[in-house]
Nucleic acid binder design. Structure first.
Length: 207
DNA sequence: GAGTTCAAGGGTTTACATCA
DNA sequence: CTGATGTAAACCCTTGAACT
């Protein structure tokens, strides 16, 4: 009694003469693992030469639907699909392998484009932060100039006054009050520890 | 004729069976 | 039980025919 798959393969051989005839095991022959032999040219063996056959639209549609359900192909499903599609189970397995490879490539491409987007927005963000740093540096320079001017003014006043130490103490608090800073000594911009804001560690380079 | 697509080839790995 | 050997199938990367 013939195996159903072998009967099926015989039917395929009838439907597609010349295609896969090399891979269909003959009566009493053990099933070979290796499929077709590589042919140097299609017409080398005349009508017996291998001709690559494209799967039909319906076959591909059914395969795609099955792939959508589950990317992995168990042996039972492979045989069932093969018989539904009129294909060799090996062809179904190959199709799934190739389809998984295409799926992986697509995934990789998507991942790459997502990373690219993230990189681009990070670059823009970095530029904004850099220009912010420049603005703040300008402000800092201005403030330092103000400090310099005020301390020169204080020096000028104190040189005419006998109680110089008192007047300096009287002038300082209102000056820092202007910047909304209280309780600081003259080292206003000293930072004891590097202050890392989320993802902004690089800012310390400018400090 | 160069580039792309896709079924299939071929090598490797893994799981299981058999045997000494 | 265990290690060696064989076989089948799954997987991955490459190849080559067909198509654009």
């Amino acid at each position: 009694m013939n195996h159903p798959i072998e009967e099926h393969m015989a039917l395929i051989s009838q439907l597609y003469p010349g295609a896969y005839t090399q891979t269909v095991p003959q009566q009493g022959e053990s099933k070979s693992r290796r499929r077709r032999k590589k042919s140097k040219s299609a017409g080398e063996n005349g009508s017996l030469g291998f001709k690559k056959r494209k799967l039909s639209e319906e076959q591909v549609n059914l395969l795609e639907r099955n792939f959508g359900d589950e990317h992995k192909l168990e042996s039972e499903r492979k045989d069932r699909l093969a018989s539904e599609l009129g294909l060799d189970p090996r062809q179904v397995a190959v199709w799934f392998q190739n389809r998984r490879a295409r799926w992986r490539n697509k995934k990789l491409e998507e991942e790459y484009s997502n990373l690219k987007k993230i990189h681009e927005t990070t670059i823009v963000e970095k530029c904004c932060l850099e220009s912010e740093v420049l603005k703040l540096k300008d402000l800092l320079a201005e403030a330092e100039k103000d400090i310099q001017r005020l301390s020169e003014r204080v020096d000028g006043i104190s040189s005419h006054s006998p109680s110089s130490s008192q007047s300096v103490g009287a002038i300082d608090p209102p000056f820092f009050g202007e910047f909304g800073i209280e309780g600081y000594d003259d080292d206003v911009f000293y930072m004891a520890e590097p202050t890392y804001v989320n993802g902004m560690g690089w800012m310390n380079l400018y400090m």
